[in-house]
């Protein structure tokens, strides 16, 4: 092919490249490969549970100290046989829902404002830094004093727990907008509102969702610790009472309930993150 007859429709140096998001392997992948993460993960959990059961069955220690997984599973089922558990779940769920929901709204708003308006950030930075470096659960006695032992002090501590990771990550997302993209937008005369909506906000989504995910952990810590200290109902309260009355399997059943909730929420957010990142080639 002579240089003159070169046709524009064929950027030949690149066409034969596989798309970047395709995983590549030198050998033909086996059928097992696809299920490998799930299989290995499940296997390791099964082995751990079996080891735990064996140690528990040996009864070197009493059931009070080392209940086996089977004991915990039985306690878990028993929890749900009595209706009381739903009141606990409902109470804790409402506390998390309200506290975390408020943290998402406020954290997103404050984080975006602080990221976009430098002076706003200068004004609020001292407070954000102060609260972020303080374990917010130490404020629970004060909240009990203010709000009593109903849901409000727990909502407050969940809110403060989740708020700051969301603020900080959202702000980082806005701040990390690529300078080259801003320059392109300005060069085409984009008004600030359009730059914010079309460039800054979509670019911040991964950061914002990371903030949400970290916030879940803080929210769960908040609800459990809050209820340990003072509560009428709630999963944290259930754990506290079971622990104080030496019902170790029941206590661990409560712990599993909390852990399961955390894993579920984190997985949901991770799914959302993946959806928003379909343009990013996979790192493998």
């Amino acid at each position: 092919m002579s240089i003159q007859s070169w046709e524009p429709a064929a950027p030949t140096t690149t066409l034969d490249r596989p798309p970047a998001r395709e995983r590549r392997s030198v050998v033909k992948p086996g059928r097992f490969k696809q299920y490998e993460p799930v299989v290995i993960g499940t296997l390791s959990v099964v082995i751990a549970l079996a080891a735990w059961q064996i140690v528990a069955n040996a009864r070197i220690y009493s059931i009070l100290f080392v209940p086996g997984p089977w004991d915990v599973a039985q306690a878990f089922v028993k929890l749900f046989q009595t209706g009381d558990i739903w009141l606990d779940i409902g109470t804790s769920g409402a506390e998390i829902g309200i506290g975390y929901g408020m943290a998402v709204v406020a954290g997103l708003a404050l984080g975006l404002l602080m990221g976009w308006y430098t002076r706003f950030q200068y004004a609020l930075d001292p407070f954000v830094n102060f609260f972020y470096s303080t374990p917010r659960i130490v404020l629970i006695p004060l909240f009990i004093l203010w709000f009593g032992i109903e849901m409000q002090p727990k909502i407050a501590v969940i809110f403060l727990g989740a708020l700051f990771p969301i603020i900080i990550n959202t702000m980082a997302g806005v701040r990390n907008t690529e300078a080259a993209l801003l320059r392109v937008a300005r060069s085409f005369g984009a008004p600030d509102a359009l730059i914010f909506r079309r460039v800054v906000l979509p670019g911040s989504v991964p950061f914002i969702l990371t903030g949400f995910r970290l916030g879940v952990g803080h929210a769960l810590t908040g609800v459990v610790v809050g209820e340990l200290i003072a509560a009428k109902h709630g999963v944290g309260q259930l754990i506290a009472i079971a622990g104080q009355t030496f019902q170790t399997p029941k206590m661990l059943a409560g712990v599993i309930l909390i852990a399961g909730t955390g894993m579920l929420l984190t997985t949901i957010i991770q799914r959302v993150e993946n959806r928003f990142q379909s343009w990013r080639p996979q790192i493998r």
Binding site: E178, A180, S187, F188, P202, F276, W279, R280
Partner: peptide
């Protein structure tokens, strides 16, 4: 005026 930049400056999510 319209500029063609040295760095492409494309929105990666578009």
């Amino acid at each position: 005026r319209a500029m063609v930049f040295q760095q492409p400056g494309l929105l990666p999510w578009r």
